[in-house]
Design a protein around this nucleic acid. Sequence first.
DNA 1: CTAGTCCACTGGTCGGACCAGTCACAGTCG
DNA 2: CGACTGTGACTGGTCCGACCAGTGGACTAG
Lengths: 252, 252
Amino acid sequence: MAKNPQFQPVQPVRAYQRIVEQVEDALARGDLAPGQRLPSERELVAQFEVSRSTVREALRVLESNGVVRSRPGDPNGPEILPFSQSALRKQMVRLARVDELTLSELIGFRMIMDGAAIQVATRLRTPEHLAEMEETLVAMRAAIDVDFEAFSEADLAFHDVIARVSRNSLIQTCNDVVRGVVLTLISDKVAHAPNSRALMLESLEHHTEVVDAIRAGNGHAAARIARQNMYDYYASYVPAPEQETLRALIDD
Amino acid sequence: MAKNPQFQPVQPVRAYQRIVEQVEDALARGDLAPGQRLPSERELVAQFEVSRSTVREALRVLESNGVVRSRPGDPNGPEILPFSQSALRKQMVRLARVDELTLSELIGFRMIMDGAAIQVATRLRTPEHLAEMEETLVAMRAAIDVDFEAFSEADLAFHDVIARVSRNSLIQTCNDVVRGVVLTLISDKVAHAPNSRALMLESLEHHTEVVDAIRAGNGHAAARIARQNMYDYYASYVPAPEQETLRALIDD
DNA sequence: CTAGTCCACTGGTCGGACCAGTCACAGTCG
DNA sequence: CGACTGTGACTGGTCCGACCAGTGGACTAG
């Protein structure tokens, strides 16, 4: 056989998807503008020469993407929504196409986010908040003797308090989502490594230092420790050269 | 008539949407995990007691959101996908639901993110990067005489350089998405205010200071100026008490 | 000119049908 | 005994035709 010509796996293109593409392309090209109306479903059936089921599946996808909105009985047909402004839309499309986020990028993102949240939380802390943090530390210590799952749970609770103190749920959500992505990526690479008791103890130690720094009002130090902790936790999963980039993030 | 009880407009809940909610809830609750399979379409028809068309519309939405993937002929049924970048994107967009997040939270998020990115960029900067930043400053100065749209475009280019220097496209993406949401929220509130020439000049001034601080290697100062700039830009749109919270974010 | 009625048409949902593809399994061949 | 193959029960993709509850514009009566 000849040299492998780098064939790519091919998956079938579904009809409804090509309808979605046509509509989105028309939108990007300017042939369709927000406020305008799409033809009715039955007319789209004729134009695209597919069944109504197919047209409807395409409309559901477009609706889910915030591109159009259908209302029963509206004689004008589905409405093109204004939310898809050019810049935002472009970014979203780009992000959808580029599926090449590296693990180090995700971890670096978390280091930055987590550090920033802790820094803000230090400024806005109250004695009640500090008490809550102490509680989660106690819970973490207790969880070490159970299993890694419980420890991970307690760790999440800690970050939850931080997010509440910093009065910004967006940070918390981003952290949670990215955290989930990181965990699945890691579990893809190695079966299960981080459940060693030593690592959990070290993590607890770090968290305690973070809380101490927060209590002392030293947000700078607290954030640094948090980033260091995150680095120690995940660095072994990324290639050496990228480890260096991550190390650069630790210091302020 | 009695005092206006602040009624909300109601829209009919479609059947397929409640299926989507049930699946997503099960996923969030942990009853469904990535790698697991959904029952086949015909079995879902029986479980949800709806027609196959409805089940399929729900599956199309879930598929569009990166939650599941259907393959023809697969006897195991639709597959639950691991959290992907596109799923992350969807999460963020959904998070941007107007009723869930306050404008001040969004702006606060941007202040933190932008500051962090600039701080990192300061550490990782090279002379070439600095030259690029200078270019965008020149472009901004030129754009002031055109219109606010052009200025906004040049501002975006600046942040794009920052993101590239900080070697983290996720930060850039988050910033862009949130930025888009903020802009639509503001344009909802007031018609068009920020296109005053004075504001643009002040913004340019701030950006210049940021670049100077980056060149000097003072990431701390650069980040602070960036946050200050963001605050000045958007603070007038949020209620006074929340302005105070945002002001607390400016200083490190 | 206004208020009320009416009806064509909309999207939402249903059930049944056919097709091409996939996969597990039983049976066959070496 | 193991590797191969053919088969058949499934899967999802698409289509069709039907019914319903709404919507909104036209039309009519006042």
